[in-house]
């Protein structure tokens, strides 16, 4: 009895459906990992040579706030040093960083909406949501397909160039103001928000738009009165998530010479003031942390309201 069952199980196992693709990708992945470790030049001994350790020790010494170096620790002195730094450039730079991130994400949302809507196949088709009673003329169908492909291509291009390189480009064109950072973050994130928005539109339930379309609503009406309210919570989640990233990136972009926090971090490093540099890096981390918390709270509120 048991032998017969085992034979049957063996037969079922041999005829089980299996995926060559899944197997091949596991093998390929293991191969890639092995290559990266061995062939990619990541030799662990480079990380901890004696010279490097000495370097590290000196660095740690210089990180101590300047007025405190070679003296016993005094909280009052340390606080005064930190306060001076904050007033001198920390706060202004933090405000710039924040302003850049807000301007960038609003720009990204507007451009993303313009590009994302025609990239959703559910919206951009000759007869959206419902079957077309007539066959659309070939040029019409072609034009709609072109719109989808075109807007997607633009968004892919925007995403393909990293924020850092966009900023580099704009910096060359516009000079060292905050605008290169705003445009760089705005365009890159427009590509991301547009894609996420288009996917939200495509994955949304089709029943409600179909019902509205079925009672005679126009394409724009269905989008504004059906699709937008349905997907708004999701879009807002993406918006705040990307804003959070913008805060972080706005800090980093300062290293290109835009007067956000990153600029002063770079500046302190150039003058070998490692104590200042570490202080400003921590200030940056604090801003990012605050951005994270605000974004998390906003997303929580949105999720609860929806």
């Amino acid at each position: 009895m048991s032998a017969a069952r085992d034979a049957e199980i063996g037969r079922l196992w041999r005829s089980r459906p299996r995926s060559r693709f899944a197997r091949a990708s596991v093998v390929a992945m293991l191969g890639l990992v092995a290559w990266a470790w061995i062939g990619g030049g990541l030799v662990p001994s480079e990380l901890l040579s004696a010279r490097r350790l000495a370097n590290l020790e000196r660095f740690l010494g210089e990180v101590t706030p300047y007025p405190l170096q070679g003296r016993t620790f005094d909280l009052g002195v340390a606080l005064r040093w930190a306060g001076d730094l904050l007033v001198e450039r920390g706060l202004a730079a933090a405000a710039t960083t924040l302003a850049i991130s807000v301007a960038a994400i609003v720009l990204a949302a507007i451009v993303g909406a313009v590009l994302g809507a025609p990239a959703a196949r559910t919206i951009a088709s000759p007869e959206p949501w419902l079957p077309d009673p007539r066959r659309p003329a070939a040029p019409v169908a072609f034009a709609w397909r072109g719109l989808v492909t075109g807007s997607r291509a633009v968004m892919i291009f925007l995403r393909a160039i990293p924020e850092y390189l966009w900023a580099f480009l704009f910096l060359a064109m516009l000079g060292p103001t905050a605008w290169p950072a705003v445009l760089a973050l705005g365009l890159h994130n427009a590509g991301i928000l547009g894609k996420l928005g288009a996917e939200a539109a495509e994955n949304a339930s089709r029943r409600e738009p179909q019902a509205l379309r079925g009672l005679g609503a126009s394409r724009a009406q269905v989008v504004a009165i059906g699709l937008l309210p349905m997907t708004l919570p999701r879009l807002l989640l993406y918006f705040f998530y990307r804003w959070e990233t913008c805060v972080r990136e706005a800090t980093v972009l300062g290293m290109l010479g835009i007067v956000s926090l990153g600029y002063w971090i770079q500046d302190a490093r150039a003058r070998n003031h490692y104590d200042e540099m570490v202080f400003l890096i921590l200030l940056g981390a604090a801003i990012v942390l605050i951005g994270d918390v605000v974004s998390a709270v906003a997303r929580r509120v949105v999720r609860r309201a929806s």
Binding site: E8, I9, L12, W13, S15, R16, P17
Partner: peptide
């Protein structure tokens, strides 16, 4: 349904 032992459940 003994013959379904090794099928993928969503099929």
């Amino acid at each position: 349904i003994p013959e379904k032992l090794f099928e993928r459940t969503d099929r």
